[in-house]
Amino acid sequence: MNTRTTALLVGIAVIAALGLTTVQRERAHAATASARAVMAGTAAAGSDADVQTEAQRTTPGVIAGVPKSRMVVAYRLDPSVTSGLFMGDRWVTPERYAFAQEGTKFVVQAKMQAIDDEGSDPLDLSGNWASRDPEMVALTREADGVVTIEVRKPGRTELVASAGGQTRTLQVTAKQTPDSMQVAIVQPAR
């Protein structure tokens, strides 16, 4: 291959990289603008007085809306499972999240995310969380829109998560065994 051909190929690669960067920036800009518009609409709409809890405060720095997408609830996988594989924190969004933990309670972290059909990275959201039975399921607001869900006793109840005008009602079922708490959390189909 001669020098001109090499220079031409390098030039094409540089132009392609610049074009890809521009497209990614335009997508991010459009998503941010859309989220701001939704956020302004959400602020004007007010809140649902039925499910007011301490865990409802919006976290600064997290976009409180849903840009061109649907909202899902993501759960943090147990770090003891992923850390040995050098995977870091992993968040999953199944319709049915079911696990068991040793002892008399079950604890998991969750957050709301905006997922679009274009395959873009999920966008973390901040919004409102509420438990229909706070004695069974307690919610604690953490940083960056993350909520710690603590299932304290067996039974059935609902969690309500809402952001950007969208609401997810999660069905929580818990069963106590002699040595563990088994929990299933089901969110509506996407």
Rank of each mutant, 00 (worst) to 15 (best):
M1L: 13
T3Q: 12
R4I: 00
A7I: 13
L9I: 15
I12W: 08
V14E: 00
I15Y: 04
I15Q: 08
A17K: 03
A17I: 12
G19D: 00
L20R: 08
T21S: 13
T22F: 04
Q24M: 10
Q24I: 09
R25M: 05
E26Q: 14
E26V: 10
H29A: 15
H29V: 10
A35N: 11
A35D: 06
M39Q: 13
A40H: 08
A40S: 13
A40Q: 13
A40V: 10
A44Q: 08
S47D: 08
S47F: 11
A49F: 07
V51F: 04
V51M: 03
Q56G: 10
R57I: 10
G61D: 11
V62P: 01
I63C: 01
A64K: 08
A64I: 09
K68C: 02
K68D: 13
R76W: 06
L77K: 15
S80T: 14
T82P: 03
S83A: 09
S83E: 11
R90V: 15
W91P: 12
W91D: 05
V92R: 09
V92G: 06
V92F: 08
T93V: 11
E95S: 13
R96Y: 03
R96Q: 05
R96P: 02
Y97H: 12
A100V: 04
A100W: 00
A100C: 07
F106P: 06
V107P: 03
V108Y: 09
K111L: 11
A114G: 12
D116S: 06
D117A: 15
S120A: 15
L123W: 01
D124M: 11
D124G: 10
D124R: 13
S126D: 09
S126L: 02
N128I: 04
S131M: 07
P134F: 03
P134W: 02
M136T: 02
V137I: 12
L139D: 06
L139W: 05
E142M: 15
A143Q: 14
V146T: 10
V147E: 08
T148R: 15
T148K: 15
V151D: 01
V151Q: 03
V151N: 03
R152V: 04
K153M: 05
P154L: 02
G155L: 01
G155E: 02
R156H: 01
R156I: 00
L159C: 05
V160D: 02
V160N: 01
V160I: 13
A163S: 14
G164I: 06
R168Q: 13
Q171N: 06
Q171M: 06
Q171H: 11
V172D: 02
A174K: 11
Q176E: 06
Q176G: 00
S180R: 15
M181K: 03
M181N: 06
V183T: 07
V183S: 04
I185W: 01
Q187D: 04
A189D: 11
